[in-house]
Design a protein around this nucleic acid. Structure first.
Lengths: 156, 156
DNA sequence: CCTTTATAGCTATTGAATATAGTCAAGTAC
DNA sequence: GTACTTGACTATATTCAATAGCTATAAAGG
């Protein structure tokens, strides 16, 4: 009959297979990167649930704070969000009274915080700073200072 | 009334606003993590386009190589994919002849590589190893060895 | 045994995030 | 002026992962 355990004769590099056997996820640092990012974003998302904002919405608030000439295309360029996707995002923030559209010229609209928007942003700042801190504290001290520089080197 | 340019008196920490002004994305390491992960996965995804596999499909092949008792639930546990999402994933790999389902007992199915699957996997290994290498080379040497350990500390 | 509970695999459906295509008006260049 | 570009937007499509629920098998307890 079929003994499922009698299958191991695969004549490939035993070293690679061995490595995979011990920690299959370690094969791909890039994959580990994705897993870590997903886990972190899920966590931050849960924290931001308190103010009912998604991560991208919170980043928009953080980004436009103190500025009066950020258009949706500028925000999109900074956060890597297509203009087609910016529109509904901003509309939802406008509908909730957190930001408003202020005409800059005939065709450009500045996205600026409203008073309620500033209040929510204050809470967002607390949440994200706490999160960032616990994030860094999870990293052993000897690796800590290398983390963000390494991350930035990857894609900038 | 509202002159959009006369808006900069926001009586918050000028330091924080300043930091945000210079590089708004650097505010959130967690956000930078997400951006980096997205960029990396897009890149790897493009490379894997050569063998018409998504990142998750390629990881499955890498994971089951040399094993004859990996069930879809085990794979899902290792890669953090729900069993509901494993089903269509595996089905597609089966349909393409890369893996096959082998009954282990009445209700468990081992997912094992076929001969063509092994051939594709060899190519996948080359691609991912190349990718992994260029990834690490982008990180300045002094940060390099700290990257993966820091990443793993975040979520394991 | 036979009933209960847990496990494995699966289907169908949903929701969120993002991408594509195209509209329209306002600005820019020649 | 005509032609081209840019900013904001609508509508739609694709992709991915999450939820709920089903069925059959296996394991555990009486």
């Amino acid at each position: 009959m079929v003994d499922p355990t009698s299958h191991p004769d695969n004549s490939e590099s035993p070293a690679a297979t061995d490595k995979a056997a011990r920690d299959p996820l370690a094969i791909l640092p890039g994959y580990t990167l994705r897993r870590a990012a997903n886990a972190m974003m899920a966590e931050l998302g849960a924290l931001l649930g308190e103010v009912e904002l998604r991560v991208s919405e919170a980043s928009i608030l953080l980004l436009i704070d103190g500025r009066s000439t950020m258009t949706s295309s500028l925000i999109g360029a900074a956060l890597d969000i297509r203009s087609a996707n910016m529109a509904p995002l901003i509309s939802s923030l406008v509908a909730r009274g957190l930001v408003e559209r202020v005409p800059l010229d005939g065709k450009s609209m500045a996205i600026v915080l409203t008073e309620p928007g500033r209040a929510v942003l204050a809470r967002v700042r607390t949440i994200t700073q706490d999160f960032e801190q616990t994030l860094m504290l999870r990293i052993p001290p000897e690796h800590r200072d290398h983390f963000v520089p390494a991350l930035n080197a990857l894609w900038r």
